[in-house]
Amino acid sequence: MTNPLAIIGRVFLSALAEIGRLSAFAAEAISHIVRPPIYWRLIAQQMWLIGYNSLPVVGMTALFTGAALAQQIYVGGSRFNAESVVPGVVVIAIVRELGPVLGGLMVAGRVSSAMAAELGTMRVTEQIDALVTLSTDPFKYLIAPRLIAAVLTLPMLVIIANIIGVLGGYIIGTGKLGLNEATYLQVTSDFLEQSDVISSLVKAAVFGFFVALMGSYHGYNSRGGAQGVGKATTNAVVSAFIAILMSNLIITVIVFGAD
C-alpha cells in the first residue's frame, strides 16, 4: 500500500484509464458530428454563447498583453539599440503564441466550466436520461453542437484577439515609446507571414475542440448532486488548460520546429 512505486504505478494506470475513457467519449462525439441529423439551430446558439460572450474578456486580455509585451521588448531591445524590433516581435509573439493560447485559456475558463455546469446539472437532474427516453441521442443533441460551435468560434475569436493584441502594442509603441506610426504598421505586416496566421487558426480550432470536449466530458459524466457538478466544473477547466498548453507545444514544435 505505502510502496511509492506502487502508488506511482496506480496513478499512472488510472491516468491511462481516464485518457482511454476520454478518447472513447471524443470518438463517439466525433462520429455524431458527421452523421445527420445536424442541429444547426443549436450550433448557432452555442456559437453565440461561446463567441459573443467571450469577446470582452478575450479582447481585454489581448489588448493588455500586447501593450505590456511592447513595453518589455522595447526595454530589452534598447540594450542592443534594437528598439525597432518591437512591432515585429509583438506581432510574431501575439499571432503565433499569445493570441491563441491566452484566448484559448480565457475561453476555457468561461466556457468549459459553463458547459460542465450545465451538462452536469442536466445529468444529476436526470434530464440527460429524459432525452434518451424521448428517442434523442444526447451525444447528437448536446455534445456534437457544442464541439462544432467551439471549433468554429475559437478561430474567429483568436483573429480578433490577434488584431487587438497588435493594436495594444501599437498604442504603447507609438503613444508612449515614440515609435513612428507608419513604420510600426509597415514592420508589423513585413514580419507577419501567412504560415503564422494559419498556425494561429489551427491552434485556435484545436483549443476550441478541447474546451468543448473537457466541458462536455466532465459535465456528462458528473454524478453525486451539486457537489459532483462543482467538481466536474473545476476538473473541466483544469483539464482544458492542460490540454490547451500541451497541444500548443506539440503544434508549435511541429510547425516551427523545422525552421
Binding site: 436526470e126 434530464q127 429524459a130 427516453t133
Partner: peptide, 19 residues
C-alpha cells in the same frame, strides 16, 4: 434499442424537465 425506446414514456422522479 432506439426502436424499443420509442415504445416507452417515463415520468422522472424530479420531473427532469429541460430547463
Amino acid at each position: 434499442r432506439k426502436q424499443v425506446l420509442s415504445k416507452f414514456g417515463m415520468l422522472f422522479q424530479g420531473a427532469a424537465l429541460f430547463d
